[in-house]
Design a protein around this nucleic acid. Structure first.
Lengths: 245, 245
DNA sequence: CCAAAAGTGTTGCAATTACACCCATGC
DNA sequence: GCATGGGTGTAATTGCAACACTTTTGG
């Protein structure tokens, strides 16, 4: 548990550990129950939700910082991670950041480094929902998956960041290897289809979808079926190691 | 002309004007003589070439900083500008930056702010070659267009930045309005085609290209022809105000 | 036996590709 | 008049979208 002293120390000493004026924010996508979800944090003693993020250490690349944030929040070391945009407006934080720290009982000194202008590098990550163990940081009391359609309003410009991330994800969807990170090793064709539909935000034709996935060797069918469902047992598939297109 | 004193002042006082650890680098594309070109700077007293770039002022968004850099180097106020990637490795500058300042006769103090870690936000710009009046900054003695295929080696990680910019440009080529920024108000169909070929790095079928451009209403034909060429006079075209696709 | 989900094949359209001929101009 | 580049049309192919029937399973 962070004490008031910890937070005050962060204000006074944090710039020795972190590059000031710079942060990474991570839009973490998961897929469960047919819905695309985001991993969000709720700040302590408030209803303020934010994207997981963090500062960049002095001897750490941007990518490494994003990986570290991801690891801290999800427990995962390897995942699909992509930088998609830098957010560098001037009025992105000033107002909110004081409120946030006020809820912790800390009045930020006027000259504190986190109150100054910050440019945030946006990353989005695709993770296997079932492998993630959400874990908040010391400023948050909740760390949860929220369906992307019905998520809480986010602080700062984090709604813009999340929306931009989804747009970026949509654009690079048909590249191929991408969805592998959002699903477990074995999955059914309808599951894969619903993932695509969740990302694209529209429904697809079942038959054409299956045909494309198989013709392009995106996935390989296993000789197993998933039993236990209410209807005909679907085949299981896995992503192909190498593909033609 | 900058004096040694100016540069020393920049080292000691620059952080009052600029956000430290942050810069913008601009990959400026122009099109002339059938070649895609980059606007590059050569540092004084050296053979070191770099991309035009600059620091970000305290009360200036990233986009505004990039626009300012573009205006300073090209004289243009309105142009196509797009942020495409943030470069945040740790070893991007340290070695080179000391050499660069050494050529100016300035030995950088160990603790100078420009020697610390810098994250650079990459922008690419598309400009009308004929309207640009290249103008170097006070650290450079040349500011020139270089064909993208035969350009000098660039310092820092600027070759990576330039290559990434071209990749990004290629991806968003067929969006449409983009090429308008690289050509004068009136142009011929072969000129437009060669621009596309220069961006894509491959040749296109003349007939199919013309068909697409006209069918999709990307361009409008004017009732003028360009005389003076050695062969049949080609029609002139302009970009259509609004297009179907 | 039937509702609901999963698997498969066919057909048509639209967009892209490939390709051949005519026209204008300067030398 | 001929070489060179500019303008136009047509056939073939490919990729995608629309669509109907059969199979399996639990209740």
């Amino acid at each position: 548990m962070p004490t008031k002293h910890d937070v005050e120390r962060f204000f006074s000493r944090g710039h020795r550990q972190y590059v000031p004026h710079l942060s990474v924010d991570c839009v973490i996508f998961g897929f469960h129950d047919g819905d695309l979800k985001l991993l969000l944090l709720k700040w302590k003693n408030s209803d303020i939700w934010v994207l997981p993020g963090g500062y960049v250490r002095w001897r750490e690349s941007l990518d490494a910082a994003a990986h570290r944030v991801l690891r801290e929040r999800t427990g995962l070391r390897r995942l699909y991670l992509k930088q998609f945009h830098a957010f560098g407006g001037m009025d992105r934080r000033e107002g909110d950041i004081r409120r946030l720290f006020a809820t912790l009982g800390v009045t930020a000194p006027r000259t504190a480094w986190p109150l100054e202008r910050v440019v945030s590098i946006g990353y989005y990550a695709l993770v296997d929902f079932s492998k993630v163990r959400p874990k908040g940081d010391y400023l948050s009391d909740r760390c949860e998956w929220c369906p992307i359609e019905v998520r809480p309003r986010l602080a700062f410009d984090h709604d813009v960041i999340a929306t931009t991330a989804l747009d970026s994800l949509r654009e690079s969807l048909d590249a191929g290897t991408l969805e592998a990170s959002l699903l477990p090793a074995r999955f059914t064709m309808p599951e894969l289809q619903r993932l695509h539909e969740a990302i694209l935000g529209r429904s697809l034709d079942r038959r054409n979808f299956q045909k494309r996935m198989l013709e392009r060797r995106v996935v390989e069918r296993l000789s197993l079926r998933r039993a236990g469902g209410a209807h005909r047992s679907p085949f299981l598939y896995r992503f192909a190691a190498s593909r033609s297109r």
